[in-house]
Computed example of a mutant assay.
Amino acid sequence: MNRQALLLIVLLAILGAVAAVALAGWQARSTPDTARMPVSDGPLRIVSLAPAVTETLFAIGAGELVVGRTEYCDFPSAARNLPTVGTTLTPNYEAIVRLKPTLIIGEATKDAPLEELNRIAPTRLLPWLTLDDVLAGIRETGRLSGHLPKAEAIAGEMGRRLKVPPPAHGPRVLLAMDGTPGQLKEVWFLRQNCIHGACLNAAGGRNAVDDEVVGVAPVLSLERVIALDPEIVLILAARTLSEDERRQIVEDWRGLPMLSAVRNSRVHVLDGREYYINGPRILELVDKLQLALRRE
């Protein structure tokens, strides 16, 4: 699988390629009720199937309970020493079985193989898209791992910083995902109802696309972008870019000179895969967004 296709799968899993309502209905049918989760008599052995879950487990002090991770779980550095077990959508069942987990935790996605994972160990797939999802997921991860007080503290701080309304007079910002440099034909964007929309509001900006859900996929035609006419365009790249790639992305946007953001040189690029991992570190994005909004 090439890098672009793999990146697209990861982004769609995080941002919800299907409508949130449909996914919620699937979760209600397919995710075991928390109160009925079996309890192991021995020490917990947790396999994490999502980078945000891995980051959260270490942040709340439960890192020593984690025995396996996905190949994308690389934070904190201690997590890199753990065996990998594939991905959420394509887990390596043999590798998971060898680790003898007593609990598997991951993010709820439509095609996650919940039934197969449950045959190995009790599995909890948690919604992890909106701010409320993330806060509830952190608390539930704390409860499942026996580290609820620290989880409550982290979720409380995130809620305090991020549960703010869009600023009445903040600039209208298009939060865009990076595409292929030199090929700006459509724009994948970050919805207001995902945690990135909350981060933008906390940073002092308003999402130029304020619809809760736009179609099935978060994608805009260039005509729609022109009609929205954002004051600022911020491109969040899910990888580290070279300087040439950064320049090319900004240059691509200059092909839309009618946009206010382009005319006023307010098209900026932020790169880093951590921007797409909705764990406790997402608060760092607020600070980066604030700096970007102040740039002229």
Rank of each mutant, 00 (worst) to 15 (best):
E296A: 08
E140G: 03
A22M: 14
L174H: 12
L293M: 09
M158I: 09
A28Q: 15
E115V: 12
R80F: 00
P257E: 03
L131K: 05
M1A: 13
A62C: 08
P76H: 03
L125W: 08
A168W: 01
V164G: 00
V97E: 12
P113D: 04
P171R: 07
P165W: 11
G106S: 10
D178L: 04
A155K: 07
L200F: 13
N2S: 12
M258Q: 06
L285W: 12
G179W: 06
K185T: 11
E64V: 10
P181E: 09
A176G: 02
P38Q: 07
C199R: 11
G179S: 04
G182S: 14
G159C: 11
A155V: 04
I105R: 08
R295C: 07
L283N: 03
L129R: 15
R247P: 03
R45P: 07
L184D: 13
R98T: 05
L291K: 13
A62V: 04
V97L: 13
P91L: 05
N278G: 14
E274W: 12
H196E: 10
L222R: 11
A112R: 02
E152I: 00
R266P: 08
V39E: 13
R247A: 15
P165A: 05
P230Y: 07
P38R: 07
V269C: 07
P91V: 04
A108D: 14
L114F: 04
L256C: 03
K288C: 10
A112N: 10
T54P: 05
Y93W: 06
L184I: 02
P32L: 11
M37E: 08
I105S: 11
L222Q: 03
R224W: 00
Y276D: 09
R294A: 15
D210S: 14
A168E: 11
A136Q: 11
H196R: 06
Y72G: 01
G159Y: 06
A153G: 02
K288I: 01
A151K: 10
A198T: 04
L131C: 05
L131F: 09
A78G: 01
E243P: 01
V66R: 06
A28M: 11
L234F: 03
C73A: 08
P101T: 01
R29A: 14
P167L: 04
D252S: 14
K288M: 02
I138G: 02
A19I: 12
E245G: 01
C199S: 12
A5K: 13
F58V: 09
E116V: 11
A24Q: 15
